[in-house]
Design a protein around this nucleic acid. Structure first.
Lengths: 210, 210
DNA sequence: GTGTGTGAATGTTTTCACAGCG
DNA sequence: CGCTGTGAAAACATTCACACAC
């Protein structure tokens, strides 16, 4: 039924690719799980175990070849290719995301943006022309897009997500502070600075004054 | 240290307060772990177990009083008060955050912002005047601030974090794509949309074409 | 009857510790 | 030697299932 590779492990892979990328930039050729562990603040054993789910990438007595391991991990995570995305909801946040150039550099490119506001349709932001939401299905199917970014107001999130799912979107980056309901095979990832703060205050509480 | 309450539980508390808040707004007075579970897409048992770490808030055969439980949880999480924060690094992201009004409504208020760029010092954004970084220590100590938001370029994150920690900051909202090193008693929370995307592509890979 | 609170059971993740390879 | 890869053990988290309170 399922992949038997724990989700937590999948979640950690991008961390590995990031450190390996910067090691590669420093022209470091070989790295041990020990080194990696220090840079990532995790135990060497965990790193070795994680990697072992996918294969044997290291050499005993030596460590891992940085470039080779990086390549393997990029392939495993699917970060070796470009991913096209659609964005739904060109409000404040959607605008900022469209206007932010660096996404594409990292392999994620917003190729289409949608809104319901007639005022916005036809405008161009960050090289993307805003289309009417009614064109969503066609665009997604034509370009075989699998990732959607949802930046509509909270009250419309579920509806927007439903539409995306109907169109065959399989991963959603959600900027709303709650989890929309989706079928099991669709992944939702939440971006929620507020939540991050709210999980920190518990520990601050016990810290006297203010 | 006698925390004994699992971190995962602490992380879930804000979700409970959010649903309870919206239930309260709908004037719903009582809720069962069953109901909560459906809304949050988690098992009733987990909710009951989580809550049991902090006390007995429910009534058998009935459920939980929404307002009362909300109050308890806000107190437990420290969300029953206002938190003042400083922001370091008024670049693109820092600017956006300062300009974003709603933070304060949710109990978090940025009361001071800092940068090293002389061009920026003295400017006002979102009601906050940008100060020179040299004034950081004084401001934090005078106002007994415990939370810092770090939006400096990646290469300067560790330095900025070190300064904040020296000044007594105990929680940091980090917008950089890596984890700075901090003492054990300082919590760092990362906001990282890129990471969110990167954890999703693993599952998309196996999905044919594109 | 209904739904909480909770030990006990089950499932999952991390860590240990060491055989074995280079 | 040094460091990987990995079963086995330990730690941790979730779910079960039921006594008990309303």
């Amino acid at each position: 039924m399922q992949s038997q590779i724990p989700d937590v492990v999948i979640y950690r892979l991008p961390f590995y690719t990031r450190v390996l990328t910067s090691l590669a930039e420093e022209d470091i050729e070989v790295v041990s799980s020990q080194d990696l562990g220090e840079r990532l603040q995790m135990t060497p054993a965990q790193i070795r175990k994680d990697l072992s789910y996918f294969g044997k990438f290291g050499r005993q007595g030596k460590g891992y070849n940085v470039k080779q391991l990086l390549g393997e991990l990029q392939q495993i995570t699917g970060l070796d290719r470009e991913w096209n995305m659609v964005l739904v909801g060109v409000g404040r946040m959607g605008n900022a995301i469209l206007d932010y150039g660096k996404l594409a550099l990292r392999g994620f490119r917003i190729v289409a943006a949608f809104d319901v506001d007639p005022q916005l349709i036809g405008r161009e932001i960050g090289g993307v022309v805003i289309q009417d939401i009614s064109e969503l299905a066609d665009t997604i199917k034509q370009q075989d897009i699998k990732i959607g970014v949802v930046t509509v107001p909270p009250s419309q999130v579920q509806q927007a997500v439903d539409r995306l799912v109907e169109c065959g979107i399989k991963a959603i980056l959600n900027y709303a502070p709650f989890a929309p309901r989706v079928p099991q095979d669709v992944r939702v990832r939440r971006v929620d600075p507020m939540l991050a703060l709210q999980t920190a205050t518990y520990h601050l509480k016990s810290l006297g004054t203010t």
